[in-house]
């Protein structure tokens, strides 16, 4: 079968490599996802819609999505600032910070979850300070926001950093020599160059946050319609052995992920046309 699709090549091992790739991909990724979609198909689109549009599920999906957008927006601004100082400035501890940016990738989500909860709970270090000011962070939507900012922190920085490193100094010199203030140069010259990469990072952070579970459930409080995220609702339905409802929410989340993946691809195509690199 593959010989029809493949161009002749002297390189050996196509059948073996492709065989391993396709087999593992099918068994581990594609078949399970098919099983989810099949479950939904058998149950019927009307039933799925009824489940997804019920108040509790809709609330959970909307909460996950809304807080993920807010957290990703925070990370968009913060990530560009962080990437800028890491590439352009020299200050003590810079290498340490550069290495630490990836901590949210390396630290297991459950560990991050209990650590953030301990810090931001009313009897914790930061939570206590907030409580004195009359604010509650843990067990409210603010707590979920903190956890989602944590998990999405590295994405924008890591996509923007290489782009900043590649900016030619002449561009800034030209802008300055034409009389632009530094702020104008940053806003009108530098920022547009960073935008495609930053948006890619934004979309990646968003995709990650929407499905995030481990770091959120400890700090969330998990009150239906208030601080209950969509992945938690799937876990709850599974524990009730309500597989159909769990599958319905799962399909809705999968759809959101696919839409976001599609958006990322569009951003990349658009930016390649416009700038030529990302």
């Amino acid at each position: 079968m593959p010989s029809m699709l493949i161009r002749r090549s002297a390189m050996p091992g196509f059948n073996l490599a492709m065989g391993i790739t396709v087999t593992m991909l099918s068994v581990i990724v594609i078949l399970p996802i098919m099983a989810l979609l099949m479950r939904g198909l058998v149950w019927g689109p009307a039933e799925i819609w009824a489940t997804v549009s019920s108040e509790r599920v809709r609330g959970a999906l909307f909460l996950s999505f809304r807080l993920s957008v807010l957290a990703a927006l925070f990370n968009l601004v913060f990530g560009v600032m962080l990437a800028w100082i890491l590439v352009r400035y020299r200050f003590p501890g810079k290498r340490l910070i550069d290495a630490a940016v990836d901590l949210p990738f390396a630290l297991p989500t459950a560990v991050a979850g209990i650590a953030l909860t301990t810090l931001y709970a009313p009897n914790g270090l930061f939570g206590g300070i907030a409580a004195d000011m009359g604010l509650r962070i843990a067990y409210t939507q603010a707590g979920i926001f903190v956890a989602l900012v944590f998990v999405g922190l590295p994405f924008v920085t890591r996509t923007v950093q290489p782009v900043i490193a590649e900016i030619e100094h002449e561009v800034e010199e030209a802008s300055a020599s034409l009389g632009a203030s530094r702020l104008t140069t940053l806003r009108r010259v530098i920022l547009p160059m960073l935008m495609p990469a930053a948006l890619t990072g934004f979309a990646l952070a968003l995709a990650r946050s929407v499905g995030e579970y481990g770091s959120v459930i400890f700090i969330a409080g998990n009150i239906p319609n208030r601080t209950e995220i969509a992945p938690l609702l799937i876990v709850i339905r599974l524990e009730e052995f309500n597989y159909n409802a769990a599958a319905a929410i799962g399909i809705a989340m999968l759809l959101i992920s696919f839409l976001m993946l599609f958006a990322i691809n569009l951003i990349q195509i658009w930016s390649r046309r416009r700038i030529g690199y990302v």
Partner: peptide
């Protein structure tokens, strides 16, 4: 781009 919980769900359904 698939939520880990959804990944687990898929495996349970299969």
């Amino acid at each position: 781009s698939v939520s880990p919980v959804v990944a687990g769900l898929c495996l349970v359904l299969l």
